[in-house]
Design a protein around this nucleic acid. Structure first.
Lengths: 80, 80
DNA sequence: TCAAAATGTTGTGTATATACAACAATATGA
DNA sequence: TCATATTGTTGTATATACACAACATTTTGA
């Protein structure tokens, strides 16, 4: 199972699933499946999504559960 | 289509497809398919391979053709 | 408040990733 | 050189990613 941050990245940008789906050229329900963890994105779709959000792929997908973005940022600040 | 550097990364380490397949727990023929570009790895397998080779995932997989590792290293050096 | 938009759910169909087997071709090493 | 390992090829079977449709539920905004 691969974890992802699609939902946060999408809502942070004020996009609907339909908006995002159109941007990466998949069915809008596919975005829902990914957000709910029903199945994994293909490598191809993972790259498209990461490019669309302008983040490195491992910031959007990970084989291990993500910290929340806020948590991660706070940890990064603390480390400086 | 996603490009990958599995073959170079593998041969650089002196591994057979069988060796690599066992390390990431897939059939050895699957490695062959990936190397030949017959199909893409799943996200899950892509992460396993990148972790096995200890490279960031975008150093092993890319939606655009790779330069050779040698070329890329030379370019990096020139930029310094 | 109420209509429209967004999301969730269920179901069916198709394409593709992967397993596995058999055998051919090529490379490698004793 | 010759046996063995490695790789390529073809074929079949299965699991999963994705498309699409219909409808229910929830959220949102005028």
């Amino acid at each position: 199972m691969i974890y992802n941050r699609i939902k946060i990245l999408r809502t942070e940008r004020g996009l609907s699933r339909k908006d995002l789906a159109e941007a990466v050229d998949v069915n809008f329900q596919t975005i829902g499946y990914l957000e709910r963890g029903d199945y994994n994105a293909s490598l191809e779709l993972a790259f498209k999504l990461a490019e669309f959000f302008e983040v490195p792929i491992d910031m959007a997908f990970s084989p291990r559960p993500f910290k929340s973005l806020a948590e991660e940022l706070a940890a990064k600040r603390a480390a400086e």
